[in-house]
Amino acid sequence: MKSLGKLRMAAAVITIIYILIPLIVVIPASFTSANYPSFPAEGFSFQWYTELLNRPEFVEAMVNSVKFALLAAFFSVVFGTLGALAIAKYDIPGKAYLTSLLTSPLSVPQLVLGIALLIYFTPMMLAGTSTGFLLAHIVICIPYVIRLVLTGLSGFDYNLERAAAILGANPVVVFWKVTLPLIRPAIISGGLFAFLTSFDNVTVSLFMVSPDMRTLPIEIFSQMQDAYNPIVASVSSLVIFISVILIIILEKLQGVGKVFGGSHS
């Protein structure tokens, strides 16, 4: 009886290590002093980090990644929050279908979405432009915002709005002083999630980038396809670092597991 439990625990630990190991090996590999990447690293140096600063394409890609992730997060949060509020608060007919429609970009493969948008954008002169890139990223971010804000609203006590109204607050005051502060964590989580989704994206981005405009994951992707160079390890470590910071905030706000459907309780 006890041994069964131990077996289960051991298997669970192995799986968790399996999930984490590719991320664990990247960081030490970035400190190698050799000019090929390996784990464990050969020697120790910061040369691949200093090298990073000498490569303008990486710096530019980094700036692009952050810039577009911020913009995509902003727009998807605005659209998504308004939409989620409408779905949660009003008796709109066909609510369930509406929610499925607004989260449907999640159920279409990103590859197919990328193909569709590239073909659609080309005659509109949007292919390979920053506008096209941003629009595509907003599409993939919106479902997460909708889902998170709807979750945030699911336990919302609408009597709070009534209580405020009875105390003399008009609908605008009710929204700013009561509704918005209470769903703010959900909105922030939605925004962080959208940021990470955009920041990490490769598949859709591949169809949207141009030689003049590339993002960090795209740089890593093409580096990996061409020549393996330890600089990939240092860039990757940088991406991990940024992701981890946002994950910590997200965990504090919402619980990362919850976002993907596994509830905490």
Partner: peptide, 22 residues
């Protein structure tokens, strides 16, 4: 949940690079 879901929030290219090393 945090341990297993967090990697989903790190770009797939980075995870692939880790496997490449291994």
């Amino acid at each position: 949940a945090l341990l297993i879901a967090s990697p989903l929030l790190v770009s797939i290219v980075v995870r692939n690079f880790g496997w490449y090393l291994l």
